[in-house]
Amino acid sequence: MTIISLVLVFIALFAFVAGQLLLKKAMDAANLSGFKSPKFFWPLATGVFLLGAQFFLNLGLLQRFDLSFIYPFQGLSVIIIAVAAAVVLREKLSIQLVAGSVLISAGIVLVSLTS
């Protein structure tokens, strides 16, 4: 796998996580201040755009790699969420979270060696 492909994998991953979190923000805003609020519209629009970008980047990667090679990388998304939450909520990561993240990362390294 080339460096460019790896970078694309990570851009797709971050777009996926950010898109999902923004959609969640939009839904929370809709519950609080209604569907006409800009606090609903902008996170929704950005979220949909990011998920759309992820869709096409992923499609482009699938044209060049096995599904069983590309899909496992999405396991990293839970680590990104955990780290983002720990930073935003100013909370220490539990041992369980760290141990699981290490296992996932090790697994990703093994998979990435097999292209």
Partner: peptide
């Protein structure tokens, strides 16, 4: 090698899924 990687990822996800869900609820 790829099966080993997939197994490690699945094991890791089983460990972190619940705490990550708890964190995400508050994010």
């Amino acid at each position: 090698l790829r099966w080993c990687g997939i197994a490690l990822i699945s094991l890791g996800l089983a460990l972190v899924a619940k705490p990550v869900a708890r964190l995400e609820e508050r994010l």
